[in-house]
Each structure stands twice: as C-alpha cells, then as structure tokens.
C-alpha cells in the first residue's frame, strides 16, 4: 500500500524537497572537505608552465544564463593568469560572453592593478561564427575588424603589436558551457595549428569531452563547479565555488535517494493480481 502511494507521489513534494536541500547550506554551512583531483591539477600546471609575459587568449564562450557556474570558473582562471604576469587577450564566440568577459576582466584588473592595452585587451564578440576563428589563423586583426570590444583600434594597444595571428599566443583557454566553445576552437584553430587548448566547462559536457581529453586534443579540462572549487583552493583564493559544494552535496544525496526510492517503489509496489 505504502509503495503504491509512493509511486503516485505528488511532484510538488519532490520539487519542494529539492529547494530545501539546496537552501539549507546557505544558512548552515557543512564545510565538507574537498580533495584535489589530477584533472584540476593538470589545468593548474598548464597555466603555471606558461612563461611570464607570454600572451594567451581566453575565450569566454558561455551564456548569461550559466553565470552561476561559469563566472567563478572564469574568474579563477583569469586570476591565476594575471597573478603569473601573463598577457591576456579576451574574446568571446557569443555576444553575451563578451559582456561577461568585460565585467570580470575589468573587475580583476582593477583589483590586481593590471592595465588595459598592455596587460590585457578585450576583442569582444565578432559575429560570423566559425568563419571568424578561421580568419584569426590568417590575420587576427582582420578577424576582429581591427577594433576591440569598445571600437578602439587595435593599433593603439602595445599588447597587440606582437599578436597578429592566432599562433602568436601561447595557448587558447576556453571557458564554455556548450556550443560554440571547445570543439569549434579544436576543429578550426588548435587542431590545424597544433596549439594547446585547455580551460573549463560545465559538468554536463565533461563525459562527452572525455574522448578529446584522452586523445590530448584538449590538454586539460576543469570539470564544472567541483573543478572550480578545487582550482580556487589551488590558487589559494576560496570563493563562490567552494561554498557551493555543500549545496551540491546535499542535493546529490537527495537525488540518489530519489533514484533508490523510485526503484524500490517500482519493485515493491503491490503487483496486479494476474501476476504481471
């Protein structure tokens, strides 16, 4: 009887409990320990090995509706790049990503005393899809229509004087929650040009990207908010991702419980009389 009822449980209860599981840690942090995985350390090491003063390109290929997971990831990666004195060219394959990159770039630059034009430049979003990426291989300035995010000519920035082609940067760092993102960079730029490509993505994309990680086509991959949390610990700047892990823990536990209950209910419910 009980299991029959459980089978037909109202979906609103399931919804409500999920909200509770997510919200509790906001009031009562659990502080569960977070261990660092090899995958996260690999991304950290890749960034550490780039010689100070070298330029990299960071592509903010995520959308505004994913900021909850992606902003902390992008912040952590850019923070380490700035800390190590790398020169950063910001870019985005989407119009929303460009706006987000500008906010994060300017915020961090202000805090870490980096100058626009010498330490970093923001190319912004250039419409045209993958054609723009392909163009960057030949002529990055032309692909960017010769202007940065705010329409200022690239010729006015000292940093851009040494970056005429995409191969002039040491690595492509992508922060992406889907498409366009990593695969476009791989197919049109880092694959043909044999450049290192790494960065981070949302946990959804991770399993599908594993073949590329295994083959080395992606040199390293931060895996979702968990990866960001570990990264924040590695650069010793625990932030939003670390604090989100408690909510993750409770909600995951809740979901596994749902899976188990759902299946128990399925097997233990009163079977129809005809034995089906």
């Amino acid at each position: 009887m009980f299991w029959d009822k459980m089978q037909k449980i109202n979906k609103y209860y399931i919804y409500a409990l999920l909200v509770i599981a997510l919200v509790i840690p906001m009031f009562v942090p659990l502080g569960l320990p977070i261990s660092i995985t090899a995958d996260t350390r690999k991304v950290y090491d890749l960034m550490e090995k780039i010689p100070p003063g070298s330029p990299i390109l960071m592509s903010f290929d995520y959308t505004a509706n994913a900021v909850a997971e992606m902003d902390p990831m992008a912040t952590a990666l850019l923070k380490q790049a700035f800390k190590r004195g790398l020169k950063v060219v910001l870019f985005s394959q989407g119009d929303q990503g460009a706006v987000l990159a500008q906010k994060i770039g300017d915020d961090l630059a202000g805090k870490m005393k980096k100058n626009y034009g010498t330490d970093y430049v923001h190319l912004g979003y250039k419409p045209g899809g993958t054609v723009v990426l392909r163009r960057m291989v030949e002529d990055l300035w032309d692909a960017a229509a010769n202007v940065d995010m705010n329409g200022k000519p690239l010729s006015s920035f000292p940093l851009m004087q040494n970056i005429k082609k995409i191969t002039d940067v040491k690595a492509i760092v992508v922060i992406s929650n889907g498409s366009p993102g990593f695969v476009e960079w791989l197919n049109y730029v880092t694959g043909p040009q044999k450049m290192p490509l790494f960065g981070g993505t949302v946990s959804v994309m991770v399993p599908g990207y594993m073949p590329y990680v295994q083959s080395g086509q992606f040199a390293g991959l931060l895996q979702g908010s968990r990866g960001t949390a570990e990264y924040e610990l590695l650069i010793k700047e625990p932030g939003k991702a670390v604090s989100a892990q408690d909510s993750q823990s409770l909600s995951h536990l809740y979901l596994v419980t749902l899976l188990v209950l759902g299946n128990l209910g399925y097997f233990l419910r009163k079977k129809p009389a005809d034995g089906r």
């Binding site: 997971e69 959804v204 399993p207 909510s247």
Partner: peptide, 30 residues
C-alpha cells in the same frame, strides 16, 4: 549513466543561482 550523473551538478548549480538571487538579493533573508 556517467553523463546523467555528471549533469546533475550543473543543473543544481543553476537552480541554486536563482534561489540565491531570490533569497539574497531580493528578499535578503540570507
């Protein structure tokens, strides 16, 4: 199965983001 398990974290994070907005920025109870 692996893919399903991995997805959960991200989706919950997004929902968490919205709940944080409602509770912290709008209602300011946290």
């Amino acid at each position: 199965g692996t893919a399903f398990g991995s997805t959960v974290a991200f989706r919950f994070n997004l929902l968490l983001g919205r709940l944080q907005f409602l509770l912290q920025e709008w209602l300011r109870v946290v």
